[in-house]
Write a protein that binds this DNA or RNA. Structure first.
Length: 652
RNA sequence: GCCGGUAUAGCUCAGUUGGUAGAGCACCUGAUUUGUAAUCAGGGGGUCGGGGGUUCGAGUCCCUCUGCCGGCACCA
């Protein structure tokens, strides 16, 4: 006999070896019908597993949130079976559930195309309809390798071989088809349901290694109900409307063109957002003890060799010959036989040069050296993405030169600055990651231990929840990464904070310590926004183009109803402009409906409508973006209101 | 860089089995003086991404380059 405990505190006895299926059936037929899996002491299990003595058992129904992951995972299996049924020469590799859905990576001579997706979906529906039970078998390693080898599944063989000796080889069958899988699964393929859709095909490297085979990945989304699926698809459609590339064009903020891939042409309106952000962050840095500098774009490659960038980063650098080109014969210049210079891909070596001018004392530290540094990186072309990933970028960069003892305080100080800025920007949903030592790195383990601990300590002290990114640190030190998501949920790193014990050494930066000896400063690389480009992209998507008033390129439009109000409107605009408010006049011969519509679609926060009545009474009819109706106020009140709302958050 | 897709007017898109390009919006002109999300009429605008090929004939088929889109890899 075994005793089983239930979440409500009840207990019940069953014969030893009783499965979850039997337990739930004995409790309630209707519950059994809805149940697709169980949790044993909090861990998801197949319903067909025997229940251990004394276990706490909870049943998971198909429409529980916890089942969603299984629906997706099972859908991946069903898709893999469908694909192999349609194209038997296809090899399966791995297929996990992911946020909102699942994927499966296949290996095939000719990759899948979008057209294949509908065929696969049909076949999947068939397999779901068949409703074969998922059954688990535990195989021996040799057996598993033999079987998959015989099937020609070389990728699976590699996976099996990589499973540690002490772990079982689980095989899940669904009818004739089977797959290596950790599990758990639901009862039958029928539990997958019909609320799924294959969304895209993509190439993906086997084991994420760009030196290995390219697999054909099929992505799908799956939900508990058709309703949820439709809701999700609609939501994605809506989200795509927030795409900064689309809004950037619609609101005339910036453009990109073929002749300058990855470099942004900022239009007046887009650059106004930039200017406001730059002014804001500059004041924040001034207040936080930073000094601002400006350093060269083009620097001799000798410095890059010394800094180590030439060796590690050269592929990403734009290299320029340091010669006057001859119109007749520029061949040798292109081949780079003369002296070479490079556009800076980062500002750090230049800042070290400023640090090194003269002699620095421990009394001078910390030095917080900021630069809105324009950098160029020759990114892989497939990586370019609107404002989010560009080749010419401007960072709100700074380097803090300090002593080892000052690192923790500086980190806390930075975290406070970061939190204040993102709070001011109205950005929430920031993911904090602590990226730790990579395999290839400089410095000894003791230094890494200390550095990683100091970052973790500062995060804890600041009460910030974070996750680790093992092995993702820079080669010279650990990093804090600050991630935000775009409209459709892709994650982008914006801010960064990095400890560096290497560069000061390579570039021979020293300060005079208390005892008169020469010591190496620690260098902290940090950026709050990250780059203006990406940050503005994130802001556009976060606000769907409806920027806060202080950031809006045009804060208000004064729109006339009749030409009799023109003079009054002109005076109003002049008064607003005198307060440095960004306003425009719309005195076109158009209906007010037309003007309101146009300025609303242009996401102008406020429309000041003036007609005959307002001109006579000295008032303004104020219409706020996103609100119905309007408010009548005196011109002076309207001006004061806009002036108040236009104050940047740090000056309030 | 890799895999798949894609490129027609400023934007969004049509363009049948190859027979020398269309719509809506935008723009320009004229009329309309209008009360809170599109007034009416007329007009201009495209060597169909670049190059090469097949063909009597290519926006349509093939090759190639480039950009862009979705992933992967790389990264702020």
């Amino acid at each position: 006999m075994i005793t089983v405990r239930f979440p409500d505190g009840a207990t019940r006895d069953f014969a030893a070896g009783t499965t979850g299926t039997t337990v739930v059936e004995q409790i309630s037929k209707s519950l059994a019908k809805a149940t697709v899996a169980m949790k044993i002491d909090g861990v998801m299990k197949d319903l067909s597993e025997p229940v251990p003595d004394g276990a706490l058992i909870a049943f998971v129904k198909r429409d529980d949130d916890e089942a969603l992951d299984m629906i997706r995972h099972d859908a991946a299996h069903v898709m893999a079976e469908a694909v192999q049924e349609l194209w038997p020469d296809t090899q399966v590799t791995i297929g996990p559930s992911i946020e909102n859905g699942f994927y499966y990576d296949f290996y095939r001579k000719t990759p899948f195309s979008e057209d294949d997706l509908r065929r696969i979906e049909k076949k999947m529906a068939e397999i779901v309809q068949r409703g074969c039970a998922f059954t688990k078998e535990v195989w021996t390693r040799d057996e598993a390798i033999k079987v998959f080898k015989a099937k020609g599944e070389t990728f699976k063989v590699e996976l099996i071989s990589a499973i540690p000796e002490d772990q079982p080889i689980n095989i899940y069958k669904q009818g004739q088809w089977f797959d290596l899988c950790r599990g758990p699964h639901m009862r039958t393929t029928k539990d997958v349901g019909t609320a799924f859709k294959l969304t895209k095909v993509a190439g993906a490297y086997w084991r994420g290694d760009s030196n290995r085979e390219v697999l054909s990945r099929i992505y799908g989304t799956a939900w508990a109900s058709k309703d949820d699926l439709d809701k999700y698809l609609t939501m994605m459609e809506e989200a795509e409307k927030r795409d900064h590339r689309k809004i950037g064009r619609e609101l005339d903020l910036f453009h990109l063109q073929d002749e300058a891939p990855g470099s942004v042409f900022w239009h007046p309106k887009g650059y106004m957002i930039w200017r406001q952000l730059e002014g804001y962050i500059r004041r924040r840095l001034d207040d936080d003890g930073y000094v601002e500098v400006k350093t060269p774009q083009l620097i001799d490659n000798k410095l890059w060799e010394q800094s180590g960038h030439w060796g590690k980063f050269r592929e990403n650098m734009f290299v320029v010959p340091d010669e006057v080109p001859s119109t007749e014969d520029d061949e040798h210049i292109i081949t780079g036989e003369g002296n070479l210079m490079a556009l800076k891909p980062m500002n750090c070596p230049a800042h070290v040069q400023i640090f090194k001018q003269g002699i620095k004392s421990y009394r001078d530290l910390p030095i917080r050296m900021a630069e809105f540094g324009c950098c160029h990186r020759n990114e892989a072309h497939g990586a370019l993405h609107g404002l989010m990933r560009v080749r010419q970028m401007t960072q709100d960069d700074a380097h803090i030169f300090c002593t080892d003892e000052q690192v923790t305080d500086e980190t806390k100080r930075f975290l406070a600055l970061f939190a204040r800025v993102y709070g001011d920007m109205g950005l929430t949903n920031i993911k904090y990651k602590l990226a730790t030592r990579p395999e290839i790195r400089a410095g000894d383990d003791a230094t890494w231990d200390r550095a990683e601990k100091s970052l973790a300590d500062a995060l804890h002290a600041s009460g910030i929840e974070f996750e680790y990114s093992p092995g993702e640190g820079a080669f010279y030190g650990p990093k804090l990464e600050f991630h935000l998501t775009d409209a459709i949920g892709r994650s982008w790193q914006c801010g960064t904070y990095q400890l560096d014990y290497v560069l000061p050494d390579r570039l021979d930066a020293t300060y005079v310590a208390e005892d008169g000896s020469r010591k190496r400063p620690v260098m902290l690389h940090r950026a709050v926004f990250g780059t203006f480009e990406r940050f503005i992209g994130i802001m556009i998507e976060n606000y769907a183009g409806r920027m806060p008033v202080w950031l809006s390129p045009v804060q208000a439009v004064v729109a006339t109803i009749v030409s009799d109000a023109d003079a009054y409107a002109e005076k109003l605009v002049a008064d607003l402009k005198a307060k440095r408010l960004r306003v425009e006049l719309d005195a076109r011969n158009e209906k007010i409906n037309y003007k309101v519509r146009e300025h609303s679609t242009q996401k102008i926060p406020l429309i000041f409508v003036v007609g005959k009545r307002e001109a006579e009474e000295g008032t303004v009819s104020v219409r706020r973006l996103g609100e119905d109706g309007q408010k009548i106020m005196t011109a002076a009140e309207a001006i004061a209101m806009l002036a108040e709302e236009s104050i940047p958050p740090d000056l309030r």
